[in-house]
Simulated assay, not measured.
Amino acid sequence: MKKNYRIWIYLSLVIAIIATIGPFIWMFLTSIKTYEEAIKIPPSILPEITQWINYKIVLDKFPFIQLYFNTFVVVLGVVVGQIIVSSLAAYAFARLEFPFKKILFVIVLSLLMIPGQIFLIPHYNIMIALKSTNTLRALIIPGLFNVFGVFLLRQFFMGIPKELDEAAMIDGCNRFQIYYKIIMPLAKPGLVALAIVTSLNTWKSLMWPIIVNRSMEKMTLSAGLAFLIGEHTTYYEQVMAGAVISVLPMIVIFIFFQKQIVEGIASTGIKG
Rank of each mutant, 00 (worst) to 15 (best):
V73I: 13
V74F: 01
V74R: 02
L76R: 06
L76T: 15
G77Y: 11
V78F: 07
V79H: 04
V79G: 11
V79Q: 10
V79S: 03
V80S: 14
G81V: 11
G81R: 04
G81W: 02
G81D: 05
Q82S: 10
I83K: 10
I84M: 12
I84W: 09
V85G: 00
V85K: 02
S86K: 07
S86E: 13
S86G: 07
S87H: 05
S87T: 09
A89K: 03
A89Q: 04
A92P: 01
A92F: 01
F93I: 08
F93D: 02
A94T: 00
A94R: 02
R95Q: 07
R95S: 08
L96N: 01
L96T: 00
E97N: 14
E97F: 08
F98N: 03
F98P: 03
P99S: 06
P99G: 10
F100Q: 07
F100P: 04
K101R: 14
K101A: 12
K102T: 09
I103A: 14
I103E: 08
L104Y: 11
L104W: 11
L104N: 11
F105L: 03
V106L: 13
V106R: 09
I107F: 12
I107V: 13
I107W: 01
V108L: 12
L109R: 02
L111K: 11
L112H: 00
M113C: 14
M113V: 15
M113H: 07
I114T: 06
P115Y: 05
P115H: 04
G116C: 10
G116W: 11
Q117L: 15
Q117T: 15
